[in-house]
């Protein structure tokens, strides 16, 4: 019974992830594409739930849906020409890109079938034990990547400020002559 339930959950989550993913790349309207990412990312959160990685379910919803999707929507709002639904969505390299992606897909499928899959025998711990283990690993074994993530976030933050501040606003704005440029 439980095995069947797991299969049903897996199949529905796969549909929930892949169908919106196809919509993301096929819809004419970029903002709609952004919104289609929402069920797709929820599906991925569902996979984490299925794997009983409780912390990652929350992080997936908090970071990917709550923050990154918002960032993507704002990035779409900054663009002008690509927002036009009448804009062509393919270019001359489309066929070659398709061939290369298809070969990549075949190669990964080949590797996946050749890989000897070992069934997971141990049961994951409860949510608290998992989070404690993750927290410990973050500050001991993976301390350097942990601090590197901080530097990466800092770089993204400063770069965005530098780019945004060196650009003039699109519309003529008044009363910003006190701003010191450069530096």
């Amino acid at each position: 019974m439980t095995a069947h339930l797991g299969t049903i959950a897996f199949v529905s989550l796969t549909a929930l992830t892949i169908l919106p993913a196809i919509m993301v790349v096929s819809t004419r309207n970029l903002v709609h594409a952004g919104f289609w990412m929402l069920p797709c990312l929820i599906g991925v959160a569902g996979f984490y739930a299925l794997l009983e990685a409780h912390f990652f379910v929350v992080v997936q919803i908090l970071i990917y849906i709550g923050a990154i999707l918002v960032l993507i929507m704002f990035a779409l709002m900054l663009t002008r020409d690509v927002m036009d639904p009448k804009e062509r969505q393919t270019n001359a390299m489309g066929v070659w890109a398709g061939v290369i992606c298809g070969l990549g897909l075949l190669a990964s499928a080949h590797m996946l079938f050749r890989h000897p899959w070992v069934g997971v025998t141990s049961h994951p711990g409860d949510a608290h034990a998992q989070t404690v283990a993750l927290g410990k690993a973050l500050v001991t074994r993976y301390a350097l990547p942990f601090e590197a993530a901080s530097v990466l976030l800092l770089a993204a933050l400063i770069a965005a400020i530098v780019i945004a501040k060196s650009m003039r606003p699109p519309a003529a704005s008044v009363g910003c002559d006190g701003e010191v440029s450069g530096g």
Binding site: G66, I68, L78, G135, F146, A160
Partner: peptide
């Protein structure tokens, strides 16, 4: 708007790192 969204993402990620740290520190 983008700048605000990016600032939000950065501190959202920071908050996500704080949770396992707070449980294990």
């Amino acid at each position: 708007y983008y700048l605000f969204a990016l600032l939000f993402v950065v501190f959202d990620v920071e908050a996500a790192f704080l949770y396992p740290w707070a449980v294990a520190y």
